[in-house]
Structure formats: structure tokens, C-alpha cells
Simulated scan of single mutants.
Amino acid sequence: MSAKKASDADPARSLALLWGSHTKPGRSGLTVRSIVLAAIELANTEGLDAVSMRQVAERLEVGTMSLYTHVPGKGELLDLMIDTAYGELYADVDAPSRQPGGWRGALEYVAARNWDLYRRNPWMLQARDPRSTLGPNATLKYEAELRPLEGVGLSDVEMDSVLTLVLAHVESTARTGADLLRVQGESGMTDNEWWLSNAPLLERFTDAGRFPVASRVGQASGEAYQAITDPAHALSFGLERILDGVAVLIAARESG
């Protein structure tokens, strides 16, 4: 399914599925929801490339053609998977706005919830498409994450831009974390184990006299992280700097 994106789906068919009933069973007893949940489970256990209509059908112990009476193809299935996963984020549309700390506390909460979502569903980092059809959960997500910025002095475009910046930072750091876990799994070595086994060879080619700043900073970072990098630290450090900048923008709007 690696070559298949949500954008391969027919938008009209996806919209009808996304906003329709997911619990009405067909003749086989299947529902759209049961198919989608099986696909998500498969993606989380075996990776997105393992997801196909045939593999999902085998997991549900039904014939492949039974799935097509509910979901017309892989593209539409991916749209449904993404929107269903977004449904895990918030209990209701005002959940971010209820967090302490005003707009800043709300955006910290939004970042944490999206980070956790990617950690639970790493396949989303591969599957998410900027042209994915907006379903009910994706729409609620956007509304919920924008509401804390309402009335703070930003224009509508600035509100969207702030949210986009925060979510892009979360996605980037989550992707780094997922890549590190994948490499560790493939190599059978932690970052620290890999570094210890390769350090003698690396030291032969990296001269501290020639690269003094890189050597010093690299050593300090490696000792602090006990790894090549620390995605969780990158998330919190970058988020604080982003929100500091947003605070400056809001203050400028208030004074202006």
C-alpha cells in the first residue's frame, strides 16, 4: 500500500463514506467501522505496507469481495483510517480550550495530543496526505485546535498559520522518533550501542582539531541524550520557541 495515498481516493466516494454511517452491518455482518479498525490494527502491528484489502479481509476472516461492498478501494480505506484515528484526539470540541494557561496552554495540549497520536499510530506519518478528504473527525480536530486562538488578536490567516506551524513541528519530531525506532529495530542496536561500536572508526576520520565546535557540541549532546538525538526534547524545545514567537506576535497586535 506504499504507493497508495489518500489522494488516490475518489473524493465523492470518500465524503459519502466519511460522513455516513459506520455501524450499519451488511449481509456478511461487517460494518465500515470494523473494517477500518482492522486496517488500523494491521498498520500498527505490521506497517502500512502490509495493509491491503486482502490482508484486512483475512484478519476479519471474510472474503475480500465482502470488503468492497462497504469500502470501494484502498484510497477510500486510507481516508477512513486517518479520520478514525483523529477521533482519538479530543473528548469534545472544547477540550483544548479548557486547558489551563490560556492559548499557550491550549497549544501545548494540542501538541502533546498530536505527538501521542503519532506515537500510537506511526503509520499516519506515512499515510497522511495534504489533500486528504475532510471527514467529521478531521473537521472537529481543526475546529477544536483553532478555538483557543479565537479572540487573541490574530487574523484568521494568522490563526491558521500558527496552528500549521505547531502541527508541522510535532509531525517533524514524531517522524524523527519513528525513524529512530525503525532503524533500531532493523539493526537490533540502540543508538548508544551503535555509537560505541563505531566510535573508534569515527574518531579516525573526525579530527577535533579541525572541527572543534562540532566535536564539542556533538559530544555534549550525545552525553545528554544517550542517543543520536532526543525527539521528545526537540519537541518541547522547539515548541517553546514557537510559542514565544507567537506571544510576541499577539503582543504586537494588542499594542498596534
Rank of each mutant, 00 (worst) to 15 (best):
R98C: 01
L42K: 15
L202S: 11
F205G: 12
P72M: 11
A174L: 05
Q55M: 11
A9G: 09
R128T: 08
E41H: 13
L18R: 08
L239F: 05
R253M: 10
A112E: 09
R59W: 15
E143K: 15
F211W: 02
A252E: 09
R113F: 03
N44W: 14
L80G: 06
V248R: 14
L18Q: 05
I228H: 03
Y90G: 00
R182Y: 03
R216C: 10
A252D: 08
A6W: 01
R119N: 09
Q219P: 13
L117P: 07
Q55Y: 04
L146Y: 04
L78P: 01
L196G: 02
H233Q: 06
T84L: 12
W194P: 02
N44K: 15
G177W: 01
K74N: 07
L17S: 05
G238N: 07
D49P: 13
A85R: 08
D207S: 10
Q219D: 14
G29N: 12
A220Q: 02
V71A: 09
D191R: 12
G29Q: 11
G63C: 08
G256T: 07
A16P: 03
G73E: 07
E254P: 04
S34R: 12
S187T: 15
K141N: 12
D179T: 13
G26S: 13
R104I: 00
V248L: 09
A138R: 14
H70R: 12
L89H: 02
G63F: 06
G105R: 06
